[in-house]
Computed example of a mutant assay.
Amino acid sequence: MTSIRRLALLVPLLTLCALAGLRAAHADTLGDIRQRGKIVVAIDLNSPPFGMADDKLKPYGSDVTAAQMLAKDLGVQLEIVQVTGPNRVPYLLTGKADIVIASFSITPERAKVIDFSLPYSAADSVVAGFASTPIKSLADLAGKRVGVVRGNLQDTLLIPLVPKGTTMVRFDDDATNAVALLSGQVDAIGTAKELVVETARRNPDKHIETKFSVKVVPQGIGMRKGETALKVWIDNWVTVNMKNGRLGESYQKAAGTPLPDLSAYFPR
């Protein structure tokens, strides 16, 4: 990675860290939520099966269900603000949302800037393409155009792994990334396996399939650093609802497949 590229990646991170520092002096979001009687949750509604909107623009999906359950258990109203992959952290740090439930993969880079709850969900990061495209492994991406969502997990995962000659093409959200594949702008896409299933279901004539898995990564509820009371409450809520199966049921209903085993992340 060149020094210019490192600087380009570092500047946004430093900016976000500065924003986090400015908000650290006021760290009682849980109290604020209870006082106003409403929690503002950022959700990506272009990320099936986690977040979607129907033809009447009503949100649905496993992340939406999780947000609805959380708000109900907290005893407050739910307000959803729509985000994309790249603006999830900025929305959180600038106070446009209290928390983020948006297929938010837990990564060391993000954990430097925000806090995550215990995992409530997970995504199998994969490379997908047309059945007719001869891709079976990373080596087969050489000479191919691969679409990813800018700054998303698959982007950061694939950068150090793809062979020389691979062209990474970045888009603003999962929906645009999928359209790029369907329209032939790219040869393959890095995405969540759950999104491949949904894209294939909606476009059966395109014969979209998962080519290979890159990594299964847990997803957490994002919150600003220093929010000790909020983190304790949410971690407890996640633990209870993983144990009683409500979060697993919500995921399976939306994704059509069981939630990956996340027991290793919880105290025994």
Rank of each mutant, 00 (worst) to 15 (best):
A188P: 06
K193E: 13
K215H: 09
L182V: 13
K193R: 15
K206T: 06
N203I: 05
D187M: 08
K211H: 06
D187E: 12
V197N: 10
T191I: 15
T199F: 04
V216E: 06
S183C: 01
L182I: 09
D205C: 10
V197C: 03
A180W: 00
S183H: 09
V216L: 12
A180I: 02
P204A: 12
R201V: 01
V196W: 00
T191Y: 05
E209P: 01
A200E: 13
P204R: 14
T210W: 01
E209Y: 00
T199V: 07
I189G: 03
L195E: 14
D205G: 14
V216T: 09
E194C: 07
E198W: 10
A192M: 12
S183A: 12
V214T: 09
T199I: 05
K211D: 04
T191C: 09
Q185T: 07
A180G: 01
A192D: 13
T199E: 10
V216Y: 02
L195W: 09
E198Q: 15
V186A: 06
Q185L: 11
E209A: 13
H207W: 04
A192T: 12
L181S: 05
E209N: 03
G184F: 08
R202S: 12
V196M: 01
H207Y: 05
G190R: 00
A180E: 02
L181W: 01
F212Q: 11
R202I: 00
A192G: 15
A200C: 11
V186T: 11
I189H: 01
T191G: 07
T199Y: 00
L195R: 06
V216D: 00
I208F: 00
T191L: 05
L182M: 10
S183D: 10
V186H: 02
V186K: 00
K211V: 04
V196E: 04
T210I: 13
K193P: 01
A188C: 10
V216F: 02
K193L: 15
I189N: 03
K215F: 13
V197Q: 11
T210D: 01
R202D: 10
A188R: 06
S183R: 07
E194N: 13
Q185R: 15
K215W: 08
T199R: 00
F212L: 06
F212I: 09
V216M: 07
A192R: 01
K206E: 09
E194G: 11
L195D: 08
V197D: 14
S213H: 08
N203T: 07
A192Y: 08
R201P: 07
Q185E: 09
D187V: 05
I189A: 10
K211I: 04
Q185G: 09
E194A: 15
N203D: 02
G184N: 11
S183Y: 06
A200S: 14
K193H: 14
F212H: 04
I189F: 07
E198R: 07
A200D: 12
H207R: 10
L195V: 09
S213A: 13
T191M: 10
K215Y: 09
N203W: 05
D205F: 13
N203M: 08
K193T: 10
R202Y: 07
T210E: 12
K206V: 04
E194Y: 05
A192V: 13
L182P: 01
L195A: 14
